[in-house]
């Protein structure tokens, strides 16, 4: 039942031609030039596949290169070398059907909540009645009905992050990229957000890359956990999370759940 911790040798992901493959990452490597002129290797060698409709967590210690990797996939940054393919196309720039949730809510203080959510539609020149309807539906889904006209400064941190989630979903992205979206929230709010995200995923079905450094968050939400090593990032373990859906808070105390947490902890080197 509990997957036995594997040696790092056999921990590699099943690299190969999945028929539902959505993303393909091969030998992704990224270096930054430091102030001192010396190169800093942020990502050493990352290869795995992203199956369509799944949520894959990138789990790793702080500063290991998770954000860097996510930005490469988003087309916001470039890998030094390596293959970064989404739907068979090398990613070179952000795509209109990607949605990004940042660590900070990044709401514009001069727009009300609804107009913040509609921002991507405005940029894509698709801000019509249907877009507005969808934005209102999403706001209702995350429990922000009645706050459409509120200013971001009037919302709590959790509410702001929910609005940011709506904004990332409003243009019905096929790929959702989330960079520690709940990292700034308190424990209780974060657990609420987990269930909200699971619920949203049932509705939207977007393939999701989810960056986190919380082990339990990764286990609770993911279909697959890609555990990164300390910088330079390599894959420490590739963990398929075969926990049943629907996932409910009680699952957190299940032996299978804690077993997966244990395995991820070993991958991060915080336990044996």
């Amino acid at each position: 039942m509990v997957a036995a911790p594997t040696s790092s040798q056999s921990a590699g992901p099943p690299v190969g031609g999945s028929s539902r493959s959505f993303g393909r990452f091969r030998n992704v490597h990224q270096e930054f030039l430091q102030e001192s002129g010396k190169p800093l290797v942020a990502i050493e060698d990352i290869s795995f596949d992203l199956a369509e409709g799944t949520l894959v967590s990138l789990l790793g210690p702080s500063g290991c290169g998770k954000t860097s990797f996510l930005k490469i996939v988003a087309g916001l940054a470039e890998a030094t070398y390596g293959i970064v393919e989404i739907r068979g196309q090398q990613v070179t720039r952000p795509q209109p059907d990607f949605g990004f949730v940042f660590q900070q809510a990044n709401l514009m203080p001069w727009r009300n909540v609804l107009d913040n959510v509609l921002f991507p539609m405005e940029i894509l020149r698709r801000k019509d009645a249907a877009a507005k309807r969808r934005a209102l539906e999403l706001l209702a889904l995350v429990g922000l009905s009645g706050f459409e006209n509120a200013r971001p400064s009037q919302l709590s941190g959790g509410m702001q992050q929910r609005a940011a989630l709506c904004r990332a979903l409003v243009h019905e992205p096929k790929l959702l990229l989330m960079d520690e979206p709940f990292g700034a929230l308190d424990e209780l709010t974060r657990m609420e957000m987990h269930d909200l995200l699971l619920q949203i995923r049932k509705v939207t079905n977007a393939t999701t890359l989810f960056v986190t450094h919380s082990i339990s968050e990764a286990v609770y939400l993911s279909d697959v956990i890609v555990a990164f090593s300390k910088r330079p990032a390599r894959i420490a373990d590739y963990i398929e999370v075969d926990l049943p859906y629907p996932r409910t808070p009680a699952l957190r105390y299940d032996a299978a759940f804690t077993g997966l947490e244990h395995r991820a902890g070993i991958a991060l080197g915080i336990t044996r």
């Binding site: 916001l76 990044n106 940029i123």
Partner: peptide, 22 residues
């Protein structure tokens, strides 16, 4: 705020959209 500029970039906003809207 750099976060807002990154947001604009993530939705492929044009330079003029980025200027006027952000």
């Amino acid at each position: 705020p750099p976060g807002l500029l990154e947001l604009a970039r993530s939705v492929s906003a044009s330079p003029s959209q980025t200027f006027w809207k952000v």
